[in-house]
């Protein structure tokens, strides 16, 4: 593609389009930004594809974030980072039981 095409696409480059696209996911674009964004959108097939892919990736993030908590211990075993070390387990266990010993006899609330 050439610089002539760039001029034709009303001053917004593809790179600027990708920046505006990302920003539009985080904040509201101004009227003139939306105008040049939309003009470029109509004229540029590559950026349209880019947008579709970015929006799909946003939905992937939602899906993965939503599934993050639901996972079972078994499914997670062996994933990055592994397990708590034996020392940490021991330490947390003793801290926890000490905390519980001071708490459990108090009235609730």
């Amino acid at each position: 593609m050439t610089s002539k095409l760039h001029t034709f696409l009303s001053a917004l480059s593809c790179e600027q389009y990708t920046r505006l696209l990302s920003r539009s996911l985080d904040s509201k674009l101004s009227f003139s930004e939306r105008l040049s964004f939309y003009t470029h959108h109509i004229l540029c097939v590559v950026c349209r594809r880019y947008r579709r892919q970015i929006l799909l990736i946003e939905r992937m993030a939602q899906k993965v974030a939503g599934a993050d908590y639901a996972k079972d211990k078994q499914e997670r075993a062996g994933s990055a980072g592994g397990e708590l070390s034996a020392e940490a387990r021991e330490r947390i266990e003793s801290e926890l039981s000490r905390e519980l010993a001071t708490r459990c006899n108090k009235p609730n609330g």
């Binding site: 050439t2 760039h6 593809c14 590559v46 594809r49 579709r52 929006l55 799909l56």
Partner: peptide, 26 residues
């Protein structure tokens, strides 16, 4: 970022069309 665009900020390459069926892909 710079590899994807030329010095005019225009795509250096053509993107393949892989997000046509988002529901399916998800």
């Amino acid at each position: 970022l710079q590899r994807d665009f030329n010095r005019y900020g225009i795509w250096n390459r053509f993107l393949s069309n892989w997000a046509a069926n988002p529901e399916e892909l998800l």
